[in-house]
């Protein structure tokens, strides 16, 4: 698969990509395979951070910052609280997996194979041009406040509903 040997493009960028991707994939494997819930959460931080780094490589600075703030800042804290409040064992424990967990392997392999096949088939040789600079935030705001306004408003309601719903669900009475 010489598509991955991107010789005719920015070498530093490529090296960065492969290193980060390797870390991310290792982290993701650990998330779904470790026997320790807290470790899984910490590995998830690695993966999410890697995603943010990839965004920076792809010139999506704003999304990367949002990723760091929302995921690593807020979502991870929520996860850790969730783990603590449900009194999961802090050390490693057996029985984190289902009895039928083996079924996941063929499904995941099948899924990965299909998607990679399709993607390679469709985009083999497509080169992403190195952007001149990061995507300006004004361009994003233009989209948000023009075509994307209605989904934006709808999303605001979703967040409001989620906030209220979370309170209602988690309330003690």
């Amino acid at each position: 698969m010489n598509a991955l040997l991107a010789a005719d493009v920015n070498v530093a960028q490529n090296v960065g990509f492969y290193v980060i991707a390797a870390v991310m994939l290792y982290g993701a494997v650990r998330v779904v395979s470790t026997r320790n819930v807290v470790h899984a959460a910490l590995w998830l931080v690695v993966v999410l951070g890697g995603v943010a780094a990839q965004y920076v490589l792809a010139a999506a600075e704003f999304v990367a910052i949002s990723q760091v703030m929302v995921y690593i800042g807020a979502v991870m804290v929520l996860f850790l609280f969730g783990i603590m409040l449900t009194r999961a064992t802090i050390g490693s424990e057996d029985g984190l997996n289902n009895r039928g967990w083996g079924l996941g392997i063929p499904v995941a392999l099948l899924l990965a194979g299909t998607m990679i096949w399709v993607v390679v088939d469709q985009y083999r040789g497509t080169v992403l041009e190195s952007p001149e600079g990061p995507m300006p935030t004004t361009a994003l705001s233009d989209v948000f406040l023009r075509e994307g306004l209605v989904p934006f408003l709808a999303l605001s309601f979703v967040l409001l509903a989620a906030a209220i719903g979370a309170i209602v669900l988690a309330r003690k009475d």
Partner: peptide, 27 residues
Amino acid sequence: QPIQSGKVNQYGALLFGAATVGAIVLI
């Protein structure tokens, strides 16, 4: 009987498996 447990995950497995098979058929 012992397999009656773990429903949600099984559903998930079937969902993704079926979606994949469907995608392959389409391809």
